[in-house]
């Protein structure tokens, strides 16, 4: 069953949010969705670069009230 993994990285300084995403990604499998909340402005370009490098899918990247929300569909894990 695909799972939704939530990562709350609000308040963490760079590269805290990407590190938290990496830790969640280790446990994830293809088909899962990872949702990351972050307040560090550096997270936006970092997560875009990350999905490109890892061949995962960025299905949502929004910012509201200083909180960045990134939703990633896991598609890039080796079998």
């Amino acid at each position: 069953m695909p799972e939704l993994i939530k990562v709350d990285a609000r308040g963490m300084a760079c590269p805290g949010p990407i590190s938290a995403l990496t830790r969640a990604y280790r446990k994830a499998k293809n088909g899962d969705t990872i949702e990351v909340l972050a307040t560090d402005p550096g997270f936006k370009p970092d997560v875009q670069a990350w999905v490109k490098r890892t061949n995962n899918e960025l299905i949502e990247l929004t910012e509201e009230g200083g909180v960045i929300k990134a939703v990633i569909k896991v598609t890039g894990k080796r079998g």
């Binding site: 280790r26 890892t54 080796r78």
Partner: peptide, 19 residues
């Protein structure tokens, strides 16, 4: 963006989570 996932000591290769 290279986080070690596994190491193949025979082939002497390190694989990353990022692929």
């Amino acid at each position: 963006f290279f986080t070690v996932d596994s190491i193949d000591v025979e082939k002497k290769r390190i694989y990353s989570l990022e692929g």
